[in-house]
Write a protein that binds this DNA or RNA. Structure first.
Length: 519
RNA sequence: UCCUCGGUAGCUCAAUUGGUAGAGCGGCCGGCUGUUAACCGGUUGGUUGCAGGUUCGAGUCCUGCCCGAGGAGCCA
C-alpha cells in the first residue's frame, strides 16, 4: 500500500512522472548484463531507470521468488504478451498498462496490454502479499505497471491472444493514472478524435493499426520481391502533377511550392533508370472532401513499370492486392477477429479478378437503375457517358462481384492528360481502376502512359498545361521512350476494406481531415 | 460549396404542450473467488455550444453565429 501512495518525503530532485512512482527493476537485467562490468551496459542501465536515485526503496510488493538467491537479481524473464503461449507454467514478467479491471472482492481481474497483445492477470487475495493485493485493487485504467506471475492456460481468459492468463505473484505500479478519459464503452466520434492520442490504445484501434502495418509490410515485400526498387519522389513539388485537384501551397523561399498529390511523373523518369520502381509516402489533397473515404493527408504506394501495357498492369495489380490481403489473413487473424471482420470474402481474393469495361459498367448501372424502386438511388445512379463514377456508382458496381473488380477504358475527358488512348477508340483511355467489394470502392487507379512525344505535347495543349513545367517530362519521350504503365494504391482505403470499417479515419494513427488537424 | 442531422454532468444519452434538469457509465466509499464494457448498495457530479429575442417562466419557441457528424460534388 505504501508504495502506491504519494511519498511527500522524497527528494525534491525527483521530476519523474508522478507521485506514485516506485522503484522499477531493470527489465531483463540478466540479459542486459551477460558479463559483469561490461562498459557499454552503463548507458542502458542509466537510461532505463534514470529516476532511480529519487525513488523510494523497493518494498515488499514483489514475490520473494523474483529475487536471485545470491545477488537479488531478478531471474524472471520479461516476455511480450503476444508470446504468452510459449511460457505456460513459467513465471514471467509483463510490462504494460492496465486496460481494464474487474473487482470481485477477494479476486481482481486485471486486463493488461503491452502493445503486443492483451492478457488477463488474476490476483487472488490469498495468494499474494497484502501490499500486492491492495496495489491491484487500487489500479486505475491506463496505469503503467510491471506484473510478474505464472502463465496458465484457461479458456475463460479474454485477450489477444485469448485463452491464457497470468496468476499474479508480484505487481509494481510505475504510475497510477488519474482520470483517464476514454472508457471501454461507446463514445462519440468527436470526443474520440479529440483524444486520438489516447484512443489508439483502445483494442479496436490497436487492431486496425496493426493491420495497417502489415499492409505496408506486405506492399514493400511484394514489390521488393518482384523486381521493383523503391524510389522516393519529392513531397515538395513545383506544380500540380495532374493539373486538376486543389493542392496545399507552401512558401518555398518566396516561390510557391505544393505538397505532392502523386509521385507518378517522377516515377516515369525513374523507370528509365531502374525498370520497375515504386514510391511510397504521404500524399496531400486540399480538396474540401467531407466523407468517410477522404483524408487530406494519406499514404499511397505508386508502382511504375517499363515495358508494360494495360493487360500486364492488371495482372500485376491482382497479384499484388491478393498478396496483401492473404498476408493480412495469415498474420493478423487475431486482429481481424477482434474487429469482427467476416473474412470469408477476403479469402476469395486471389487472381484473376473480374474485368469489365467502362461501357459495360454503364450498362450494369442502367440495369440497376431500372430495377430499383428507391427513387433516391435512381437519382444518385444517374450518369452520362463521359462522366467518372461517383461513390454511389462504385458501391452498386462492387455489389455485383465478390472479388475486387477492374473497370477499364475510362473516357479520355474524365481522366488525366498522360493516359494512353485506346487503339482505334481515341475517346477512351487505357486506364483501369480497381474497386474493392462490399461497397468499399476504388482502391487503385492506374493506366498505361502516353509514350509518344507528339501525342503528349498535343494533350498538354488540350489540357491547357504549361509546357515549360513539363519539359523534363517530355524529355522522357525523346530518349528511348517505351510503353509503360503504373498505378497508385491508397493505403487507408485498402486497410478500411480489409478491416471492414465504415470510415477510413481509423486506419491512420493521426488522421488529417477537412475539419481536423489536432492532435 | 450544397443538402440533412446534431451540440444537455468527465463520457453515452433522457427531459411530455414552454412549468423543480435526470439516468447509466466513470470517480469516490462499501460488498462479492471467475469477471469478459461484471454485478449490487451508497455517494459525487450542470454557465443545457455562444449571443440576442419572445414569455410570468426557455434545455424546449424565434433570429444570428460557432462547432461537429453523415451524404453530394471532387478524388485514392
Amino acid at each position: 500500500m505504501a508504495v502506491m501512495m504519494p511519498t511527500p518525503t522524497r527528494s525534491p530532485c525527483c521530476r519523474s512522472v508522478s507521485h506514485s512512482v516506485i522503484f522499477v527493476p531493470l527489465p531483463r537485467r540478466a540479459e542486459l548484463y551477460p558479463a559483469r562490468g561490461a562498459g557499454s551496459n552503463r548507458d542502458l542501465r542509466r537510461s532505463s531507470r534514470s529516476h532511480r536515485p529519487c525513488s523510494p526503496p523497493r518494498s515488499g510488493v514483489q514475490s520473494p521468488r523474483e529475487r536471485h538467491p545470491r545477488g537479488g537479481l531478478p531471474m524472471i524473464k520479461t516476455i511480450r504478451i503476444e508470446n504468452v503461449a510459449q511460457h505456460v507454467g513459467e513465471e514471467v514478467r509483463i510490462q504494460g498498462w492496465l486496460y481494464n479491471r474487474t473487482d470481485k472482492g477477494k479476486l481482481q481481474f486485471l486486463q493488461v496490454r503491452d502493445g503486443s497483445g492483451f492478457v488477463q492477470c488474476v490476483v487472488f487475495k490469498k495468494e499474494v502479499p497484502e501490499e500486492v493485493f491492495e496495489a491491484a485493487r487500487r489500479l486505475t485504467q491506463e496505469s503503467s505497471l510491471v506484473v510478474t506471475g505464472v502463465v496458465r492456460q484457461d479458456d475463460r481468459a479474454p485477450g489477444v491472444p485469448g485463452g491464457y492468463e497470468i496468476g499474479v505473484t508480484g505487481l509494481e505500479v510505475i504510475q497510477l493514472a488519474q482520470d483517464y478519459p476514454i472508457q471501454p464503452k461507446e463514445h462519440g466520434v468527436d470526443f474520440l478524435m479529440d483524444h486520438r492520442h489516447l484512443w489508439i490504445r483502445s483494442r479496436r484501434q490497436w487492431a486496425v493499426l496493426r493491420v495497417r502495418a502489415t499492409v505496408i509490410r506486405a506492399i514493400r515485400d511484394w514489390l521488393d520481391d518482384h523486381g521493383f526498387i523503391n524510389m522516393d519522389t519529392p513531397i515538395l513539388t513545383p506544380a500540380a502533377c495532374e493539373g486538376t485537384t486543389t493542392l496545399f501551397e507552401t512558401d518555398y523561399f518566396g516561390e510557391p511550392a505544393y505538397l505532392t498529390q502523386s509521385g507518378q511523373l517522377y516515377n516515369e523518369a525513374n523507370i528509365y533508370a531502374f525498370g520497375r520502381v515504386y514510391c511510397f509516402g504521404p500524399t496531400f489533397r486540399a480538396e474540401k472532401s467531407k466523407t468517410r473515404r477522404h483524408l487530406t493527408e494519406f499514404w499511397m504506394v505508386e508502382p511504375e513499370i517499363a515495358f508494360c501495357d494495360l493487360d500486364q498492369l492488371m495482372e500485376i495489380e491482382e497479384q499484388f492486392v491478393s498478396y496483401i490481403v492473404q498476408r493480412c489473413l495469415k498474420e493478423r487473424s487475431a486482429e481481424l477477429a477482434l474487429l469482427g471482420r467476416d473474412t470469408s470474402l477476403l479469402e476469395k481474393v486471389e487472381p484473376p479478378f473480374p474485368r469489365i469495361s467502362y461501357d459495360e459498367a454503364l450498362e450494369i448501372l442502367a440495369e440497376v437503375r431500372e430495377q430499383t424502386e428507391d427513387p433516391q438511388l435512381k437519382e444518385l445512379l444517374k450518369i452520362e457517358w463521359g462522366e467518372d463514377f461517383g461513390s454511389p456508382h462504385e458501391t452498386e458496381l462492387t455489389k455485383r462481384f465478390d472479388k475486387p473488380v477492374f473497370v477499364y477504358g475510362y473516357p479520355t475527358i474524365a481522366k488525366a492528360f498522360y493516359m494512353e488512348p485506346w487503339p482505334g477508340r481515341p475517346e477512351i483511355t487505357k486506364s483501369v481502376d480497381l474497386l474493392a467489394p462490399e461497397g468499399y470502392g476504388e482502391i487503385t487507379g492506374g493506366s498505361e502512359r502516353i509514350s509518344d512525344p507528339d501525342l503528349l505535347l498535343k494533350r498538354l495543349e488540350e489540357w491547357n498545361l504549361p509546357r515549360e513545367a513539363f519539359e523534363w517530362y517530355i524529355d522522357l519521350r525523346k530518349y528511348g521512350s517505351v510503353p509503360h504503365s503504373g498505378f497508385g494504391l491508397g493505403v487507408e482505403r485498402t486497410v478500411t476494406w480489409i478491416c471492414g470499417l465504415n470510415h477510413l479515419r481509423e486506419t491512420i494513427p493521426f488522421p488529417r481531415m477537412l475539419k481536423r488537424v489536432y492532435p
